[in-house]
Simulated assay, not measured.
Amino acid sequence: MDVSGARTLVEGLAVPWDIAFLPDGNALVTERDSARLLRVSPDGRATAIGTIEGVSAAGEGGLLGVAVSPTYADDQYIFVYFTADDDNRIVRYQLDGDRLSDRQVILSGIPKSGIHNGGRIAFGPDGHLYAGTGEAGDQPLAQDRESLGGKILRMTMDGRPAPGNPFEGSVVWSYGHRNVQGLAWDSQGRMFATEFGQNSFDEINRIEKGANYGWPEVEGVGGDDRFVDPLLTWSTDEASPSGLAYAGGSLWAAALRGARLWQVPLSADGEAGRPIAHFEGEYGRIRAATPAPDGSLWISTSNKDGRGDPDPADDRIIVLPARR
């Protein structure tokens, strides 16, 4: 990834929360507070597709994740994760050109709050839809396997538990999470997720089927056999990691409070090398990180989210070209 060649693609957005690519190379971008779904082209044209129905934006909630069906050419399905009046939920649409239709709520009942709503959704290499959720500030929910809060979920395109899930009749894939806002898979299909810590340690975790990641009993490395220790930790002022991508042999973690992009080289066996910080003091809070079909990496700023210091160009999408 050519970090030195980073360029601003789009300016003047408002809390662009997630980025997902269509097969034609255009991106779908969500705006958290406005509930707008945008189409952004590789040459920087941004057009509004529409405003997502039912979004109740407040605090950290609003229109959050977006994902594109791996069989989009056949079904035209896109998926959004958002905060509604009573919960967080995942809704499926068909996208025909710039027209959204066939709205279907596929999963509801994810706990909501002014904080810790999770919200990232992505399709894994297995073709199933994964979602990172938060415990909505109610810490015991993370250990309650009957709750959808503080979990990573795995489901079919209809919102049903995916075949092979660890707990019968449940969409829960892993638990013991505080607030998951980043999901990524490496070239060998290993899954990783970012985790917001409380006061001491933010995390990247390697995610295993049915595993317990310890919150609220443990923050950071606990050394307790009941829980899986993180792959990597930072102090909370260095990170607050949101979006996560894999590209060029590294994980790329978007840091909010840390106001930088972290590069984490991965070894052949999936171990983390020494993290490298990029863009400190340059773009402010960084929210999303998504690899594009052309090998570049798109990231978004989050300086208008109430915790940043926006300049007249914010918020923006920045492209890191693929290294040639």
Rank of each mutant, 00 (worst) to 15 (best):
D144C: 04
I52P: 07
V105Q: 15
S240G: 15
D225S: 15
Q198R: 15
W234L: 05
I286S: 03
T8I: 14
V264S: 07
A46E: 06
S250E: 10
G97C: 06
D74S: 15
P310N: 11
E282W: 01
S235D: 13
G127F: 02
E208R: 12
E146S: 15
G249C: 08
D309I: 08
A254F: 03
R260C: 14
G132L: 10
G270A: 12
W215I: 07
D87Q: 11
A73I: 09
Y93E: 07
A48N: 07
E208N: 11
G114R: 12
G44S: 06
L251M: 08
I317M: 12
V66K: 08
E282S: 12
E53W: 01
L232C: 02
M1W: 02
R99S: 13
P23N: 03
N165K: 02
E60R: 06
H128R: 11
N199S: 14
E238K: 15
R45F: 03
L141G: 09
L297P: 05
D294N: 13
Y77P: 00
G248W: 04
R89I: 05
N26E: 14
L231N: 02
L13T: 05
L22Y: 02
Q94W: 01
T156Q: 08
G214R: 03
G44V: 04
G127W: 01
G65C: 10
G214S: 09
L9S: 09
A67I: 09
G164F: 01
E53L: 10
S302Y: 02
D269R: 08
D18T: 06
N199Q: 15
G281I: 07
G281S: 11
I204Q: 06
R178F: 03
H177N: 09
Q263Y: 00
P42N: 04
G270C: 07
S300N: 05
T8C: 08
N179Q: 02
E280C: 02
A211T: 07
V3K: 10
L244M: 11
R206S: 08
L95G: 04
A84Q: 01
G5Y: 03
E219I: 04
Q181H: 04
P275Q: 05
I110A: 10
N205V: 04
G109C: 02
G248Y: 02
R260S: 14
Q104G: 03
D126T: 00
A184R: 08
L95I: 02
A247Q: 14
I115S: 12
F82A: 11
L232W: 03
A272D: 00
L64E: 05
V29L: 13
V171C: 14
A184S: 14
Y246R: 04
D43N: 11
